[in-house]
Design a protein around this nucleic acid. Structure first.
Lengths: 144, 144
DNA sequence: TATAAATAGGATAAATTTATCCTATTTAAA
DNA sequence: TTTAAATAGGATAAATTTATCCTATTTATA
């Protein structure tokens, strides 16, 4: 469904959010260890998230990655997916046609659109705060 | 969402079904032209669909690919997706965890499962006959 | 101001997916 | 029985995604 990069990106963002609640910055090594991902690749994904202003980076000693506390509840899963995988999952044709719309739909168009819209709604209505709090409560997990 | 191979596989299956209604077998060249896909790659995908008994192949002169008329309405989109992409889209974790279930769910588990189940239901309740008839009626298209 | 700790980013490699090409095998029909 | 038309399948190449490594740059602090 999502690319590996996007999966890592979401997991990393949740972990960063969790730490930002405590005012703690985290580095790629720690992140990769906690979400069970390759360090260098994860670092690249973090760069992309910084560029898209999903997370914030602080260079130099005592630096690391963080999310402003008051921004955590406004960052939606869709922001992360957008930043890494783009919008094809929301906009693209399920059968891969270059163009596919009501005017000239592919055979799967109507039924696929329903599911895709549901996915979109889900991603747009789920924010990092909710996800991080679930984890903090010990109800959900980022690895294994 | 689906791999290119799977997209081509679904489009090809619909085109074959359409022709099988008229008792006509089709070859990879014609299929690829009608669904706008690379010929040789499409041929490989057809092989996989034959192996999984989604479609039927007839070798030799006057051969080609076909689907038994009375089977067309029993072949579901999920059969094609299963054959080509496997079941990860139904079973796999949305965040890519090796294991993820109610007992130890990832942060996205519950919300993702809802969407995934909806996708599964859609694919399992859509058969080739329906899709082919829509196309025959000129309401839907396999390319552009 | 020097140093150490941290992210940024370029170059490259490995793995996977997508795509092509060629030959073998099968089969209907002349 | 030969021939031509068709799928099967192996080998390989191209493209993309995933992953690694190394160096540059930035910054807090001793």
């Amino acid at each position: 469904m999502f690319s590996k990069a996007c999966e890592y990106g979401i997991r990393a963002s949740i972990f960063i959010a969790l730490n930002s609640f405590e005012g703690k910055r985290v580095n790629p090594k720690e992140i990769a260890s906690e979400i069970d991902s390759p360090v260098a690749f994860t670092a690249k994904i973090l760069q992309a998230l910084v560029k898209h202003k999903v997370i914030n980076s602080v260079k130099g000693a005592h630096g690391g990655f963080e999310i402003e506390k008051n921004k955590i509840n406004s960052i939606k899963l869709s922001d992360i997916v957008d930043a890494i995988d783009g919008n094809t999952i929301y906009e693209g044709c399920g059968l891969g046609l270059k163009a596919c719309d009501e005017a000239r739909p592919c055979p799967m168009h109507d039924k696929f659109k329903t599911v895709r819209d549901e996915l979109k709604t889900m991603l747009e209505s789920t924010n990092l705060e909710t996800l991080a709090l679930d984890m903090k409560g010990g109800d959900t997990f980022l690895k294994r």
